[in-house]
Amino acid sequence: MTKTFHIVVLGGDGIGPEVCDQSVRLLQQMQPHLDGVEFHLDPHDVGVGEYQRSGEALPDSAFEACLASDAVLLGAMGLPNVRYPNGKEIAPQLDLRERLQLYGGVRPIQLFHESDTPLKDYGAGDIDFVLVRESTEGLFYGRDAVADLSADEATNQLRISRQASERVCRLSFELARRRGGKKKVSLIDKANVLSTMVYFRHIFDEVAKDFPDVTAEHVYVDAMALFMVRRPHDFDVMVTENMFGDILSDLAAGIVGGMGMAPSGDIGDNAAVFQPSHGSAPDIAGRSLANPIAMHLSTAMMLDWLDHPETKRGAEALKAAVADVLSDPNQRTADMGGKLSTVEITDRISRSLDRQLQGQGSTA
């Protein structure tokens, strides 16, 4: 019996649609090779363009489709020069995280080639960790507050709840257990200053007792900014508050080649959205200059999350194809010092993907 997966596709703004289109192309390419699996792709317009057209950045029809889907594939959303009347950027991806309760922002960080990192003495596979960002509260909890620009001060609320903390910590320990390897979870906090972080650490330690086979440690966020550069090889899975994760995930991307190499999945109990960690980069939109690797790796994350033996096989084949292409340092887009266009590097990945799916492996 064929299993049909309903995947909502949200291209977004700027470079979002062009990188998303290339990943959809790879998804369609692999479908005939996956036994008993079918993808029903359901595109919807969201983001700045839709806001300018209808006044709604995330229309009810698109949200309902996401709610009913098996997964959501998202390009990138928002344009810095188009904002809501209160001055904030249009970011329906944040609305999706909160409304779908996508509490686990899973950000894998992997080095594919020594030429892609600014750090010395690191080669392919030497940097391989996952940053898990709690994505429904933290300092982002107060993002709807509107500052009175004539007042003497402005404040935001940082919220840490037991429910959100327990579930994101549990997700992180389960991920470390599945990854094998070091089997270590590092809590990134600021418990020496903030009472909310003391509470977060307390809940982390409670959850850790249920995973005696996984090492648990605490690292202050400022120290982690240093350690991520000095000794990234020491880490396996990290879990942290929303704002800390937002900042550190960019630093993490920087040590493996930049935002174009950083995939992500926003995971909930009943829904998930997969997107590159980068923004919409309107300055290069429509020129086929964007790096699609983060989008392709996000697509592989989605296939793995769908949890069917054949989608998992597709995920492994896509990741292997990306690694195969990136094993040649001359195969890079402009952001990484190369000359390949968005389409050209995807063409190479496409050819390798065929070989992976046919069991022939790399020709690099």
Rank of each mutant, 00 (worst) to 15 (best):
S298L: 03
V221Q: 13
E134P: 06
V37Q: 10
S61E: 15
S341F: 08
I247E: 13
G260P: 14
Q101T: 13
G254I: 01
M295K: 12
D304Q: 15
G16I: 00
D205F: 01
E18V: 04
S341Q: 14
R167C: 01
S249M: 06
A281S: 11
A176G: 02
V237M: 07
M228V: 12
G361H: 03
L67V: 02
M1L: 14
Q356R: 02
F63K: 08
G47K: 06
K120M: 07
T333S: 09
E310D: 11
T117E: 08
D335I: 02
Q163S: 08
D13C: 06
Y199E: 10
C20I: 04
A57V: 03
I345Y: 12
K183T: 00
F200A: 04
A321N: 07
P118T: 10
G14I: 03
Q360C: 08
A176M: 01
L306N: 11
H233Y: 13
S186I: 00
G78N: 06
F129T: 03
A272V: 02
P108I: 01
D335A: 01
A216K: 09
T346M: 03
Q31I: 01
G47N: 11
R170S: 01
Y220A: 00
L74I: 00
R179L: 02
V72D: 06
K183I: 00
L34I: 01
A65T: 03
D283E: 13
A124I: 04
C20D: 13
K209N: 12
S135G: 12
R348L: 15
D21F: 02
Q358N: 15
R53L: 07
I293K: 10
D307L: 08
Y84F: 15
P232N: 02
R167K: 12
G181S: 05
E310G: 09
P80F: 05
E344M: 14
A91P: 11
C66K: 01
A216P: 14
L248E: 03
R355G: 05
I255L: 11
A154V: 10
